[in-house]
């Protein structure tokens, strides 16, 4: 405890330091920590400003910046009570349910289809497999904007406009190429011996898929599920085009966009509205964050 730092651990023999070890050492150096903190602060600052803004009175929001809050703190819950439809106007709460109804099937449909087709592409040999996989992979290049009007025309012709089906189907369609690609790569990494062993034990494709693959796939499925959920929850464009049919099918993002009023005169409500709609994504993130990081690496590491 005095002047010299006591050598508590004998210095490691320096011959064998793995690449991971080097990375760990470098990333946990004080400089790296400072950089990480600076980046974190910079990136959180706008959100923090938004949070502060959401508690300021209308006049203050409209005339001064959020940082003046610290020299002249006045708070109010009026913005929040307004986005929950007191004295008419928008009630965001009513659209929470819509957003959930849209999101859950929009995640489950592509997830189940993609898992099955990824299995087929990875472990069933059939003619044209590679060409077909390449085509699906290439579909990721197509921007979804070009499909909007043709897709809407199809929905009109099969008469499902104004229902949730348009949103479920379109979100599922847009998600499938990436989902199949991601899960396919994940499945290819599973050692072939495992599948052969299952086959020797008399398992067909169905039981291999459910008993061997699915348990191993959980992190990849969860990662994809989170991505898809956040994407669908925050989506505005697809909802704008396909949710035509009034308040029954409109998600919360659509109402958030309308919150500022016909001529944008109520824009001071946006910060409060943003924080209300953020609740679900934050919950999902907190619940599943460990899969999130693992999922970022899914498909990128090839053995």
């Amino acid at each position: 405890m005095s002047t010299a730092t006591p050598v508590t651990t004998p210095p490691l023999k320096a011959e064998k330091i793995s690449t991971a070890g080097v990375a760990k050492k470098r990333l946990s150096s004080p400089w790296a920590s400072i950089a990480a903190i600076v980046i974190a602060v910079l990136w959180t600052l706008p959100t923090f400003g938004l949070l502060v803004s959401s508690f300021r009175p209308e006049r203050e929001i409209k005339t001064t910046g959020w940082w003046t809050f610290f020299s002249d703190p006045t708070t109010t819950f009026e913005n929040y009570s307004k986005v929950f439809g007191e004295e008419g106007g928008v009630n965001l709460a009513a659209f929470f349910v819509n957003s959930l109804i849209i999101c859950i099937p929009s995640v489950l449909i592509p997830m189940s289809i993609a898992a099955l087709s990824a299995y087929a592409f990875a472990w069933i040999k059939f003619p044209g497999r590679n060409v077909l996989f390449l085509m699906i992979f290439a579909l990721q290049i197509v921007p979804l904007q070009v499909t909007l009007i043709p897709l809407l025309k199809i929905f009109v012709s099969i008469d499902i406009t104004g229902t949730f089906w348009t949103l479920w189907l379109s979100h599922a369609t847009f998600a499938l190429p990436l989902a199949i690609y991601l899960l396919h790569n994940f499945m290819r990494e599973i050692p072939a011996g495992l599948i052969e062993a299952a086959r020797v034990d008399g398992a067909g494709h169905v039981s291999i898929f459910f008993k061997v693959m699915l348990p191993l796939l959980t992190p990849a499925l969860a990662a994809f599920g989170i991505f898809q959920f956040l994407w669908v929850w925050n989506d505005l464009l697809v909802a704008l085009v396909f949710a035509g049919g009034g308040d029954e099918v409109a998600p919360i993002t659509l109402q958030l966009a309308n919150l500022s009023g016909t001529r944008g005169t109520a824009w001071h409500l946006l910060s409060a509205g943003a924080f209300v709609s953020i609740i679900v994504p934050v919950t999902v993130f907190l619940l599943l964050q460990r899969y999130f990081v693992r999922g970022l690496l899914a498909g990128s590491v090839k053995g």
């Binding site: 965001l92 709460a93 009513a94 929470f96 349910v97 919950t283």
Partner: peptide, 12 residues
């Protein structure tokens, strides 16, 4: 966050 969500649901 969960309870806040629940409150909104009820408010809805």
């Amino acid at each position: 966050t969960l309870s806040a969500g629940l409150v909104f649901g009820l408010a809805a």
